[in-house]
Write a protein that binds this DNA or RNA. Sequence first.
DNA 1: GTGGTCTAGACCACA
DNA 2: GTGGTCTAGACCACA
Lengths: 119, 119, 119, 119
Amino acid sequence: MDFKSDRPIYLQIRDYAFGCILGDCWKPGEKVPSVREMSVQLAVNTHTVAKAYELLESEGVIIPRRGMGFFLAEDARTRIKEEQRREFFANTLPEVFSTMKQLGIDINDIISRWNEGES
Amino acid sequence: MDFKSDRPIYLQIRDYAFGCILGDCWKPGEKVPSVREMSVQLAVNTHTVAKAYELLESEGVIIPRRGMGFFLAEDARTRIKEEQRREFFANTLPEVFSTMKQLGIDINDIISRWNEGES
Amino acid sequence: MDFKSDRPIYLQIRDYAFGCILGDCWKPGEKVPSVREMSVQLAVNTHTVAKAYELLESEGVIIPRRGMGFFLAEDARTRIKEEQRREFFANTLPEVFSTMKQLGIDINDIISRWNEGES
Amino acid sequence: MDFKSDRPIYLQIRDYAFGCILGDCWKPGEKVPSVREMSVQLAVNTHTVAKAYELLESEGVIIPRRGMGFFLAEDARTRIKEEQRREFFANTLPEVFSTMKQLGIDINDIISRWNEGES
DNA sequence: GTGGTCTAGACCACA
DNA sequence: GTGGTCTAGACCACA
């Protein structure tokens, strides 16, 4: 966790969870670390972890079972990728386009830079 | 101004100012609209405009003259453009490309979205 | 047992027991399944079953005999039915009707939903 | 607020807001009481109000404007009614049906009681 | 003033 | 042990 970052800690925890899921440390259908375990491990308050978990739950990535903790959804990996695509097209890209227009950067500049990276 | 956007209003005002400068509505060395004029024109609170102007002043883009208001710096256009282009190509774009690769987003998706925004 | 439901597992177990009693699978005066048998059968933790049985005991529905397990009370069926019907018609139904009127929900919506559940 | 109730306070606050909206105390498009105002008025912690407001925001009933507070959505009344219908058919009704089946209550009993209430 | 985030500490129902 | 709720108190960016 980067406490100096502008990015709220609860979103950093979500990012961390995404890494665990895509990196296959958290397996579909299995239990994920409890709120308390995570709060100790990451040295943050339980509320902050709880807030991240709430968000992940609302995204359908983890599923709560009363008194038993949270379990990773079977389709968690798919959901994450979809969620990240949504974020990219809804937030990141419009900002980039806005900057490009402001600076008069042509889409062809972008395309050629992309192709450089590909080769 | 987009009150629903995540982008703070004072930064949207700065964006707007950048547009005025790059679009040559605000001429180097000439007076720019007063804080009050802007607040009326954009329908925002005066001290939100004041905050944007403070930032622009600290960036050397506009210069205050006692009792006369703010004037556009002679080198405002160049300064803005150079700095922003540098940042865009050094930081923003690589991050965007990285995300695109991670999510398997094709450059053609980007191009078609750009063209939509143009039409 | 529905682990996704808002209804606590131990109350779902009680519901299940009520079904067994009203459905005549559990006979008055006879032994009911042990906590362990139930926990295996329903795939839940033994102390979750124990909690449900405690509640049933406090309601006078089942009776513990040292070293022998729990036995169904002679008047279990009557007691359950009377109490629950009374509560349903006195409290639950009026609340439901009140909500329906407030939201303009027609009785026919309810009937068709009921028939769906039947088929 | 009923601190003894099983219903969480933040949901009671949401109920209260629903009353204000349906009762036309809160007008569409206008500012609603700030989190702090509500917390004083209802004698609860700001967090608890904030949690209720978060929920209302996620339901599209109120809209946040940075630094200015929350404003009532134009279509708030419609949204609330829809939300309450959803809750009724998703939660309340299934529970009622479950009870009815358990107790062997016929749908015709319900219909006749409804008609009594109507006449 | 306004909401957003975070901490520390507590109590609760549930499993 | 596990999450859910609530309090008290703090600091922050934003308007």
